[in-house]
Design a protein around this nucleic acid. Structure first.
Lengths: 187, 187
DNA sequence: AAAATAACTAAACGAACGTTTAGATAAAAT
DNA sequence: ATTTTATCTAAACGTTCGTTTAGTTATTTT
């Protein structure tokens, strides 16, 4: 019938994701996206609707990428040390890729914490709750803990992830490793 | 000679500070500032130069407000438990004022971590380094600790402050208190 | 080869941004 | 009371934002 797309949608989405990841939603302009994705504004809009839905797709793509890490975490049988390994995995993948952009979900969570964008806020809450429940399941593997302790520790680890996310944007790998060690010292 | 200002510069600066504090720099528009400060754009510009310098003044004003807390921390003689009290003080002042805006410095630190605004980034670094050194001095009060441990613990507490800041924007007071308790369990 | 149609380029859209300016207003000084 | 001068109002500035649209190009099908 007619001409075929000159680009791969998954490929350009990945590039958009990295841009959002590094700069956040607001600080990423359509102009920057055009340049980074290598395609025209028209093509972006025809493929992804608008900036907001492109961001949602980027988030979805990010979660798909980390879902392996999350599955590894869930399927592990070593309780707390699995969570610790999960923390290490997330910073290792950051440094291996040569960037220090932290965690896209945590970044987004922070950027939108006071916004009125309820759709994105809800998505973030779901992701965070999900992670919290995984932590709880892991902590339950240690039968010596009571439910109250487990809840507190799960919350503690979830908030520690915020510290980790902030750190993985500015601190050195050694400082981050020290932070992880200290975080798990008392659990 | 002529007419007097119809507003108090310190008062309107305080209002600007609270707006920046709650929404961040970029998400706060001149229109919002006009409304919140209760004065016209012209007055804002004639009193504070531009948005950027108004933000710098807001930061300065914020630091002046927390300087009491910081002085209390420095002058204490109880080492680690002084730091713990400092953590409690900062969240208490947040909840007492009926808002959950976290810490303006930490918010700014996060918002500008990947920006090119070197002036603000430098100011943030200075503030964070300053806090870190105070933590180190506190930790030194426990003579049983060696220098390597102290450095790691200071870094840990500084990053814990990021978790605290994130928490104080979304979590309940009880969850935040639990987080603080857990943070200091292993120090 | 011609017709059809989707992908492309590039220009323009209205709205909102931070900032400036011209003119009206009001209070202090003569 | 008049002059002077800083403060205020309100409109407009030039940019940039996200988004749309008209017109051109290229590829597939008839």
């Amino acid at each position: 019938m007619a001409r075929k797309k000159g680009y791969n949608e998954t490929e350009v989405l990945e590039k958009a994701m990295h841009l959002f990841w590094g700069n956040g939603y607001e600080a990423t302009s359509m102009q920057m996206l055009e340049k980074e994705m290598g395609i025209n504004k028209f093509s972006i809009y025809s493929s992804f609707g608008n900036k907001h839905s492109l961001f949602l797709e980027s988030l979805k793509h990010y979660k798909l990428n980390v879902s392996n890490t999350l599955e590894t975490l869930k399927s592990g049988t070593n309780g707390v040390s699995d969570i610790k390994q999960f923390f290490y995995d997330s910073i290792n993948s950051n440094f291996k890729q040569g960037h220090q952009k932290g965690c896209l979900v945590t970044n987004t969570y922070n950027e939108f914490s006071k916004s009125e964008d309820h759709l994105i806020k809800e998505q973030m809450s779901i992701f965070m709750d999900n992670l919290k429940h995984i932590f709880i399941e892991k902590l339950k593997m240690d039968t010596s803990k009571n439910d109250s302790t487990i809840l507190k520790q799960a919350n503690y680890l979830l908030l520690a992830k915020h510290g980790l996310a902030a750190a993985s944007r500015v601190n050195t790998k050694e400082e981050i490793e020290d932070y992880i060690e200290m975080t798990f010292n008392n659990i």
